[in-house]
Design a protein around this nucleic acid. Structure first.
Lengths: 136, 136
DNA sequence: TGCTTATATGCACATGAATGCACATACTAA
DNA sequence: TTAGTATGTGCATTCATGTGCATATAAGCA
């Protein structure tokens, strides 16, 4: 009979586009480095700080921290402001939260549409799903 | 007078711990590769599929796709099931959504607590914030 | 038993990223 | 101007990762 064992059609197509569209690898990659996460933690605790102060609590060289801060800024996770000879960095909280919110919104349908191995071909007890059409 | 120009104390400390705690670099790193994202897109569109089918639509070698699928599985983003000589992979939607939800929950307070350069030292118009204590 | 197909792995290679040192640049202060 | 401090950059090194080819392992089929 070859019933389409996947209900995925328009719903899945739209979801795939939406989900993949918001998966900003640049943004995610910036959060994928342990040192950068440590930097973020320090920024949360201390608020806007200059490079030297941020690097003071970390083991890497100041230049390394400077580069990581640049990476974070390119991902818009942090912003910088130059005051005198120092450059202060701070987390752009609203942007980060907004970004993650959008991702969650787009991925939300996956909780139901991407239940792993849900199609009948993977469940020995398939036959026809007739009976009560749209059951729970 | 040296008032603590940052309101961050217990609130920020707790938030920093929570936020950094859920920032699973392993999970995020798995989502940071373009090829892996393409794989996920195909899995969303086609549902559970074997390696060959997944690789059919992509430019890389099957072995490469196999390795990426392994990476995704180690991050629990996908699950696998061996049927005969084929290995089917599928997205663990509920887990992914749950993961992102937890991240958003933990990062949520950042939207307010991490407004960049919020402290008075960065705003020339500081003085005392008296007057209407907690204004909008 | 062979023969074919599907997936994973060993190996080598290329690319990218993180790191640290030295130095250039930018700014402050005398 | 000269000296001193803060940050960013060039360069080389190291390490991780992605990639593809060849091959091993596993499973179905004749």
């Amino acid at each position: 009979m070859k019933q389409d064992n996947r209900k995925q059609t328009a719903e899945h197509t739209a979801m795939a586009e939406a989900a993949i569209g918001v998966l900003d690898t640049h943004f995610l990659k910036a959060l994928s480095d342990p040192t950068r996460v440590k930097i973020l933690k320090r920024l949360i605790l201390m608020g806007a700080s200059d490079v030297g102060t941020i690097a003071a609590g970390l083991s890497q060289d100041r230049s390394v921290i400077s580069r990581h801060l640049n990476t974070l800024e390119q991902a818009r996770i942090t912003t910088s402001r130059k005051i005198g000879r120092r450059v202060f960095y701070d987390i752009d909280g609203p942007y980060v939260v907004e970004k993650v919110s959008v991702i969650l919104e787009a991925l939300g349908p996956m909780a139901e549409l991407c239940t792993p191995f849900d199609s009948p071909q993977f469940n020995s007890l398939q036959a026809e799903p007739s009976k009560d059409g749209a059951a729970a």
